[in-house]
Design a protein around this nucleic acid. Sequence first.
DNA 1: AAATAATTCATAATCATTACGATTTAAAAT
DNA 2: ATTTTAAATCGTAATGATTATGAATTATTT
Lengths: 137, 137
Amino acid sequence: MNIERALQLLKEKGYKRTRQRERMLEIFTGQDHYIAAKAILKKIQEDFPSVSFDTIYRNLYLLTDEEILEATELEGEKHFRLACDTYGHHHHFICTDCGKTKSIAFCPMEQVNENLAEYEVENHKFEIYGKCPQCQV
Amino acid sequence: MNIERALQLLKEKGYKRTRQRERMLEIFTGQDHYIAAKAILKKIQEDFPSVSFDTIYRNLYLLTDEEILEATELEGEKHFRLACDTYGHHHHFICTDCGKTKSIAFCPMEQVNENLAEYEVENHKFEIYGKCPQCQV
DNA sequence: AAATAATTCATAATCATTACGATTTAAAAT
DNA sequence: ATTTTAAATCGTAATGATTATGAATTATTT
């Protein structure tokens, strides 16, 4: 995902192009880290000191719904990153210090041979946690 | 995990045997469901109307640290269940309605062949979400 | 039965998140 | 270029889960 494509997607859906949204996308661009909602807020306040929680959260969820961002919950806080498009469905190693991610192509759902016939599977989560090379002691 | 063993473990560590703790363990016994902290509180209040948040949360975390309970975070709320001892390390299907679980013996870490040599893996999470037979529409 | 150390209770504080009404602003229509 | 209008933002307050605190209580040890 890149800014151009994100803005295009938003336009197609009739959403307005606001400076706050552009700035949010800029913050995410080029990052392969998950970032806490709180951290996004702080970053944006550097340019828009009066931006409110509402704006940030509303937009984070909007962008996630539109699949421009990916979300995950780490230690009770929601974190976000630009949706990856290196390959399709995949998972992540996530650094518990800095949020840096490494993509894991393998999806465990292919291998589960437990009998789940009577269960209606809707979703799954596979994440590996640890320290990236930069964050090791 | 069963009550006797849990109480034994607590005793060995020098923790006191309180009525509240016994009641908590009773509530979990025989359940293969993840239960929200809030729900535990309500249940215990039936017997101890004046029990406080503090008691519940402190004990849920204590029991989790002692590996008597297992915890997971579902929709921003922590949920708990008795640690399974059907077999060793494993994962769960979790019903998003009632919290009922089904054990999944397969662990995806065995299959990951991405090169994580430079990454210090500490932990992982694999959960499948959906509706159990009882909760399907 | 007394001592002591852990535990609980009652309540307040914190932290992330969500909600709301008034105001502003981007984009469409004139 | 101006007006219109619907969406978005701001400022602030509310909510909900969780954590913290200090005094009172209780299980265990002496």
